[in-house]
Design a protein around this nucleic acid. Structure first.
Lengths: 266, 266
DNA sequence: CGGGAGCTTGAGGGAAGTCAACCGGGGTGG
DNA sequence: CCACCCCGGTTGACTTCCCTCAAGCTCCCG
């Protein structure tokens, strides 16, 4: 709650204005008509405090939350209270696409910072998809991108060590935040505990691994932000390939015959 | 290749006949018309030998493979040759839904046993989806189910020990094979090496964990098959809840107003 | 009969977890 | 205004889980 100030850190990018600014709409599958139709069904954005649940883990939901500002995480809880983070939701992302067709969510979504989200009723989106193939396709595309991210997530958890996993997460964040250049610096509002929950580690161990990365000059950290002095070196460490993020809105272009917008900063 | 005989083990279920028998079509989102249209675009099934790649990991694909017989696995390879299995493909499953909209696959698919698959050209499926909202929706539904499975997979890899992960995988297979009752026995054509690649472990350790599960009477194994004497006890060990498999074709029913077929044996 | 794939077993090592204590800063309440 | 407190980060000692390497076994198949 007291993170309100932090949410507007030194590297805040201009807030997204509408659903047309989200990744769903950027996927080149949509016509301008589709985008307008999407904006028409969008209700007013809703604010959340850090720690709030956008989507409770174990209760039915019928709204899809498009995050336009702030960070959130997708999580699943063990019976003994531990939680595993299964995805990070950044500005422009759709927090819970599974609620499009499932009554009970497969995971909860919790705000890390203060968050602004547009909660679109599932039925409105389904109706839109039924009459506009472009939107239906864009929704499928979004689900598939989510899929690719989860596959990579599982891969890292299963086959990489703590050092590589942490490096990989930082590489991913740099790309998704559009700050993948050298000497790239970006906000990182996650605590070491958050990182641990995401990487399948403990906070103590995350701490030690972070220190080693710092000692090796692979990263530098300031309060709530990270600098990557040499992107290539960090990527080499964890074998990072940004293709799985599908930042270029691939595939769809070939299908719809639309030009690919210059969205990627990979 | 010499597994051809094994693929027709003692618990072989009748082979699926067409796309209408796959999970995609069972999702209650399709009208009978939709199902017919789907069957109309289906080419002849194609056989694969054990070890064959249905989808090569690093080459563009434009066919979606519906597996009607046999087992396959979805995998991702590390630069040093290790592989992480990110999903198992059973009869009725769609092996590579990501190829619907992406040119390059996010993972490869390799046959574990002899496999029969129906390779549907992506374009035909896309065209069908564009004119039939039901099929578009069923495809999205399939992607979301895949999603739920991957989330659970990541959860297990991140937060469970070897024993729990292995138990969880066996519980999942029992349900997906429709053999979730007590004293349930089912074919398991995977080697301990396959299991290790799936669970993020080594084959040696899988071996030891299997022995402990056997010693504790949680499972019994015969050649290429597993028996679960007490389903409840095994599920309790790994905190298994079959909801994430969405075997009941949920959500869609409420949407389309169709009755839910009695597909679940959960 | 030989050979290979898959399973089993053992000894030793390393990565990550656990438990516990301490620190530093910012916010809150007295 | 200051003291306190809580949260997040840091550090150390010890433990545990799982990996590595290596060898031997069994079964199936050629």
């Amino acid at each position: 709650m007291t993170d309100a100030a932090r949410a507007t850190g030194p590297f805040k990018r201009p807030a997204l204005r509408s659903l047309s600014d989200t990744r769903l709409a950027a996927s080149t599958l949509l016509s301008d008509d589709d985008r307008r139709a999407l904006d028409d069904v969008a209700p007013a954005p809703r604010p959340f405090y850090a720690g709030d649940q956008l989507v409770p883990e174990c209760a039915a939901t019928d709204h899809l939350h498009f995050v336009v500002e702030g960070w959130a995480l997708q999580f699943k809880t063990t019976p003994d209270g531990e939680q595993q983070v299964v995805g990070l939701v950044l500005p422009g992302d759709l927090a819970n696409i599974d609620s499009l067709l499932f009554d009970r969510p497969d995971f909860g979504v919790r705000a890390i910072t203060r968050v602004t989200a547009v909660p679109v009723p599932r039925d409105r989106l389904l109706a839109l998809a039924a009459e506009r193939p472009g939107i239906a396709r864009a929704l499928t595309w979004t689900a598939l991108v989510e899929n690719a991210g989860l596959i990579q997530w599982a891969f890292c958890l299963g086959r990489q060590g703590a050092r590589e996993r942490l490096a990989h997460l930082l590489c991913e964040l740099a790309v998704r935040l559009g700050r993948a250049g050298d000497a790239a610096r970006f906000d990182l509002p996650m605590t070491q505990e958050h990182l641990a929950d995401a990487l399948g580690l403990t906070a103590v161990h995350v701490n030690r691994v972070l220190q080693r990365l710092r000692a090796d000059r692979l990263i530098a950290t300031a309060s709530r932000s990270v600098t990557v002095p040499d992107t290539a070196r960090l990527r080499e460490l964890c074998d990072f390939d940004p293709a799985y993020l599908h930042m270029d809105g691939d595939g769809p272009a070939a299908v719809a015959g639309h030009p690919v917008p210059a969205m990627a900063a990979v």
